[in-house]
Nucleic acid binder design. Structure first.
Lengths: 212, 212
DNA sequence: ACCCATATATTCCATATGGAGTATATGAGT
DNA sequence: ACTCATATACTCCATATGGAATATATGGGT
């Protein structure tokens, strides 16, 4: 069973979506896209760096979703290419947006990996780490709430900032879950053993009886 | 201001942590690590593929955290290298685990990108997408709850499966948030405009009056 | 007039990632 | 006995990603 043909897997990275969205507003060159994204705090939610940006722009051009309309050369500065959104790109944007909203994608949060192997630590150490995490999550929630309030004051509507509300809600949910787990450990309600054959040795505690 | 020197940035990928954890249990060759991770459903939480696995193992060996102890050659099958955990690796494992548990890392969930540009769609379309998302999240929660129940029945403790509880809690939190947002849109409580200068054109609705 | 920090605009390159490819062994079915 | 799917155990390569490097322009201070 051989693979052949060019079935263009129709994958949209969040960055590609962002590019299409910016060009829907007005024609731009890549550097301006980056500046605009930063000005709008969009780089908090979408991974942004120059290598990937220019590469993604090239890809979108090859698909015919965006078109170069101008190669400006002000003075002797580096030449810049201004792109505009093609009709096909506008359709792609709508489709991509629908998919991102509809389909939950598998994500791999780092914290899950920490939890998976938490049993390697002594219960008291684990509880201590979780306590610190909850505090840091608290600080993040506060920070985002301030940013959100400030942007609302500048006249942006809830709709324009809905991803911030989502971020805050998710951070808060994790914070609550972490606090609850910490409490269960401290209270000894979470039995500190793994069961069946997984007889891993427990790693030594970071504080306390390390001498032997 | 030049950069020089070799400041080994002490970065642990979740996969590296997983490798150290497996070797803490017993010596293994990389292929067996992959099989074991799959058998334990760890690949649901940690990105796993062969290219990265072998590459990461090499990196850990270069750091002196794991050591090759045997190069078996059964029959004429491909030679396999069995590794064991070094003392330095055991320490690295404890450190990495602590960091993962303590420090929230910046993640870039795809859904955030969808939300950021949701205002490009008609309110009714957006609500429809969110409704579908909530249903899919529901299905995922149910699936994970079944897997969790099955593994508990096999004798694994809560501690050994705590990452599943976390996953379920996070999916559930998102599901509730999505349902609430959907309701606000349907009820017209979420004002459908973005404010200030961001006058983006609204894309056409996927169903309904597309003729003009 | 000159210096330097910052902004503008992109290119380049080393490394990371994902997945297909290679090669042999095993076991189930006909 | 023979075939074929699957398991074992990597290796290779194309593409993606992140960030440094390059090169010029601008504006404020001395």
């Amino acid at each position: 069973m051989e693979y052949m043909g060019e079935l263009e897997v129709e994958v949209f990275s969040p960055l590609a979506l962002s590019i299409l969205e910016l060009l829907d507003e007005r024609p731009m060159h890549p550097y301006e896209m980056a500046s605009t994204m930063r000005a709008r705090h969009h780089d908090e939610f979408i991974r942004l760096n120059f290598g990937t940006l220019y590469h993604t722009v090239d890809g979108l051009e090859r698909k015919g979703w965006i078109l170069p309309i101008e190669r400006e050369k002000e003075g002797r500065r580096p030449e810049r290419t201004i792109y505009r959104l093609a009709d096909a790109g506008r359709e792609a944007l709508t489709r991509a947006l629908g998919e991102l909203l509809r389909k939950p994608t598998r994500e791999y949060p780092q914290f899950a990996a920490g939890l998976m192997f938490m049993h390697h630590l002594a219960a008291a150490d684990a509880a201590h780490h979780l306590n610190q995490r909850a505090a840091l999550l608290d600080a993040q929630v506060t920070k985002f709430e301030h940013v959100l309030a400030e942007l609302r004051r500048q006249g942006l509507t809830r709709l324009a900032l809905i991803e911030m509300e989502h971020k805050i809600a998710m951070l808060d949910a994790e914070r609550k879950w972490v606090r609850k787990l910490e409490q269960e450990i401290v209270d000894g309600k979470l039995e500190w053993k793994v069961g069946i054959d997984s007889g891993h040795g427990m790693l030594r505690s970071s504080h306390g009886t390390s001498a032997h």
